[in-house]
Design a protein around this nucleic acid. Sequence first.
DNA 1: TCTTCGCCATCACAATTTCCGAAGGCGTGA
DNA 2: TCACGCCTTCGGAAATTGTGATGGCGAAGA
Lengths: 301, 301
Amino acid sequence: MELYHLRTFVAVAEEKHLTRAAERLFTSQPAISAHIKALEETLGVTLFDRTPKGMRLTAVGEEMLPRARQALAAANTFVQHAKGLQDELIGSVRIGLNSDARFLRLAALQAALADDYPRLEVAMLTGSTGTNLPALRVGKLDAAFVSGEIDDPSMSVCFLAEEPLVIAAPTGLREQIVSTEVEALAALPWVYTSPDCSHFRVMRVLFEAHCCEPTRILIANQEDALVEMVRAGVGLGIIRRGVLAPDDPQAYELPVALPAVPLQFAYLRKRENDPVIRALMQEVCAVWGVDAPREQVRDAG
Amino acid sequence: MELYHLRTFVAVAEEKHLTRAAERLFTSQPAISAHIKALEETLGVTLFDRTPKGMRLTAVGEEMLPRARQALAAANTFVQHAKGLQDELIGSVRIGLNSDARFLRLAALQAALADDYPRLEVAMLTGSTGTNLPALRVGKLDAAFVSGEIDDPSMSVCFLAEEPLVIAAPTGLREQIVSTEVEALAALPWVYTSPDCSHFRVMRVLFEAHCCEPTRILIANQEDALVEMVRAGVGLGIIRRGVLAPDDPQAYELPVALPAVPLQFAYLRKRENDPVIRALMQEVCAVWGVDAPREQVRDAG
DNA sequence: TCTTCGCCATCACAATTTCCGAAGGCGTGA
DNA sequence: TCACGCCTTCGGAAATTGTGATGGCGAAGA
């Protein structure tokens, strides 16, 4: 038995004529006749009395009719529920962070997501560019903020902003910094970022260009930890411009030109048409005032 | 959307594999795949995540699953209800009577019907052979007790018993009844049965055989009315043997041989396979201790 | 790192089901 | 008696559904 049997049953019961029921269902009268016959056979009961004036429900048919309507209503509820869900994102999404909440404008993103997709659970997970990328690859994250150029064909990235970097020095070392030449700076103690952080690359490029290597002192892979190290006088470090207050008594920015790194939003390319990803991208881009990437349909060409 | 889409949806959700769902539904894996794909398309939502390990419900799918089960359950209820009804007669049946309740053994019939078919509404409608037959033809009755030979090819009859008739005479006329010869009796006053009663035919045959005609006095088409007329001394009448008590002070049975008429149970031949008629016949025959007519299947030969 | 395995999507074609138009039976009303 | 409306049945056409083979894609194991 299929739903069309029930639809036909109800239509015939209401129209009282195969002919009219056929018109209503946009089909032919013999088709309707066959539906009723098949239904009666599978049920093992007679639903209609055939009279020269049309079809009249038997007592059994009368009793079956409301249950047929019920079954159809349940099926309809199923479909309607889907219609209500089809533009609504439900489930959860995990976003990897690589910096502090304010810089990443998380409050605005959270507000926008909660507003547009109230049933979407959003998890924002601290990490770094270096930990976010593998987490994306193995599916532990759905999208992530990353810094620096991403050279991974499986990854889609969306540029959000330039992240200007500066060298921060502790006030206690001010006297030892006689020059802002790289070679001179390299001789000073440094607080390293961990190798999986984009700042590390900037640092490496900087020193490699001058064929020197800094004195390693400590590795901090959390930006605030690094800042604290610098302020505690452990050594110099590379941080985002603006992290240090201009009047910070314990550390200050050196006037050295560093290449800016791009802040990007990354996700697996193969998920670029996933509605969750699309929605996320749209909200992130809106928050950052950039254009969202165009839809990538699979069969485009 | 049809029920098989829902069946497949639930099976896949439970088995978590297209392959296993296909086995469970005794079909092929591509068929299952097409069902899910079609369902997702008509609903406009994604129900499953395709993983290399199988199919995993999405959050939307998780939310749709119970509603799919509900719809299937409603459809199943529909079918099960029919199964419960298929041996149960419901509705109503109208039986025409042509005599008194005790003679027709209505108490026993009613008890048997109520016992075997508790949901069958039984209406027993007083009438006579003459009124029952046309009522059957126009569908005002479903079956009826009739007396005498029925000569109507559209009617099926089932013999129940012989109905012996007697001539009843009022005690007040005893002195005038010098002979039980028909010619002599014809000269006496008679209470006629109405022409649509089988007793009328018996009377007519009786007098025609002797080429005489009785004096008409009164017509009563209700047997008890006729008996009362006879007892009141209005005239002679034909009644069933045994209606008059042997010690009745007001009327007595004349020792005249009358042909017995058969009591029969009649219904429209075209309804002989109607379950209600079949059930009715079976019960009536059981009450009267006769064999029910064999099933008449249309394509028998 | 490479291979093998399991799983799902797709394709061309076959099988089945469904549908349609025509014809026929049947009862009704003119 | 005829014409009409209604349902059933029938053969063939059309659409849908199902099948087996094939390929892509990750994951698990060597």
